[in-house]
Nucleic acid binder design. Structure first.
Lengths: 198, 198
DNA sequence: GTGTTTCTTGACCGGGCGGTCAAGCAGATT
DNA sequence: AATCTGCTTGACCGCCCGGTCAAGAAACAC
């Protein structure tokens, strides 16, 4: 593929990706047909195949862009904060904010993880996300602010809490993002420091 | 449907469910055809539709049975333990053990959550699981062993950690279940007590 | 052996799917 | 005016899917 796109073309591409994201999230990837996608935009089927090689490539593209965007928003949120624990907190908060603003993608991510064809794309992105956080955890451990445990495991635990709370409370129940973020941060910081003193 | 099944019939039903579970987990629900399922067992297509109304019903049945089994194994693991915090710990450990022994179902659960048709089935089961744990958390709060926060949120956080660590470490990396369980328990107990004292 | 019920077969059907393509349109370039 | 390139059309194709069903085969009952 790798077509030359004019600004008009780029806009169409956006439209297709956005609209498809909505349909995929609402009805599922497989049950959504290419015909359905183009009908929603009132264009012919050929348009779709002008911008994407296949339905599969479209989803991969959506996933890639989303992950990239999430990462960007996270790095921007953390900014130049120096305290490692605070960096983690900011990361959690920005994750939740992003997920709240992109609810449809939560479902899409979750689906993509279940299908052999898309899992690699997703995994690569998640590894980057993990790799972004692990150093902060390590730093926290060195500083004695976080208990001495495998940083990778701790990071995954944080990710598990954040994603699940986003799904359960922000997405399904529509609770205020900030409240959920507070709860997630409190639980994770407790889990990281882990003074389970009697 | 509601057929009368002889023991021979019940066995066929089992075979179909087990084999389909594997195919669904490996290749995805939609990409797996009914023809594929019955071919793997070397029987005709009619056999499938003798035991199940539809492919959809089959998945629902698999999900229901799995959730029921998971709950049973959890209740058995908790037994008559009286300490609420310890009950939570036993719940986490038995969850991880079950998930490790039924890896294929992790993927299936995750897929089912993304599709409108199956989400309700899944949600009902998850609500039961949550409802099982919430009282222990409440009890722990009353006893001053767990910090005073919304028990529902805390329970979901536990579930998020457990499921994610199961996926990331037990399923994808094949790490020893007990190690992962130790890490999950440590993180969750930290998150529950949450003495983030300076 | 006869009747009844449970189970199995596999050709068949209608339909919808992902993907193609010859043809045409529109705006910039020359 | 002519041309070229980015974009659009929608009928069409071959395939395979979920699901049906008339016709039996086993197992069991008596």
């Amino acid at each position: 593929m790798n077509r030359r796109l004019t600004s008009r073309g780029k806009e169409r591409r956006r439209q297709l990706m956005d609209h498809a994201t909505g349909l995929f999230a609402d009805n599922g990837y497989h049950p959504t047909s290419v015909a359905e996608i183009v009908q929603g935009l009132g264009v012919g089927k050929g348009v779709f195949y002008w911008y994407f090689q296949s339905k599969e490539e479209l989803l991969v593209e959506i996933l890639r862009e989303a992950q990239h965007d999430l990462r960007r928003s996270q790095q921007q949120a953390i900014g130049d904060e120096t305290d490692p624990v605070r960096r983690i907190e900011l990361g959690i908060r920005s994750s939740l904010a992003w997920l709240a603003a992109n609810r449809r993608l939560i479902t899409l991510f979750q689906f993509a993880a279940t299908e052999e064809r898309f899992a690699p794309t997703l995994r690569r992105g998640q590894e980057v996300a993990i790799a972004d956080v692990v150093p902060h955890v390590k730093e926290g451990i060195v500083a004695g602010r976080i208990r001495d445990a495998d940083p990778l495991v701790l990071t995954h635990a944080i990710l598990g809490v954040t994603n699940h709370l986003a799904r359960a409370f922000v997405m399904e129940r529509g609770e205020p993002t900030d409240d959920v973020a507070d709860a997630a941060v409190a639980f994770c910081l407790g889990g990281l420091t882990g003074d389970t003193n009697p």
